[in-house]
């Protein structure tokens, strides 16, 4: 194979390689965004809860 004059036909392997490289990077990016969203939702929920809790504490 290595003795051939013309370059080896390895386009499919290249495609596969880049799917893995870019795919993994993309997945990680998605996971970062996802985790960030979840935390922001938690934060909003906490804001709501503390808004509810505080007046009731003062009234008692």
């Amino acid at each position: 194979m290595l003795l051939q004059e013309a370059p080896a036909e390895t386009f499919s392997f290249m495609a596969f390689g880049f799917i893995v490289i870019l795919g993994t990077m993309g997945l990680y990016l998605l996971s970062l965004i996802n985790r960030y969203r979840n935390l922001e939702q938690d934060m909003e929920l906490l804001d709501e809860l503390s808004a509810k809790v505080e007046p009731s504490v003062e009234s008692t």
Binding site: P7, F13, M14, G17, I21
Partner: peptide, 19 residues
């Protein structure tokens, strides 16, 4: 350029080493 012996797959090399 396309690598003379290995062909297109050699293009993986750039990001492979960088990773």
């Amino acid at each position: 350029p396309r690598e003379a012996v290995m062909g297109d797959v050699q293009r993986v090399f750039y990001f492979h080493v960088a990773s």
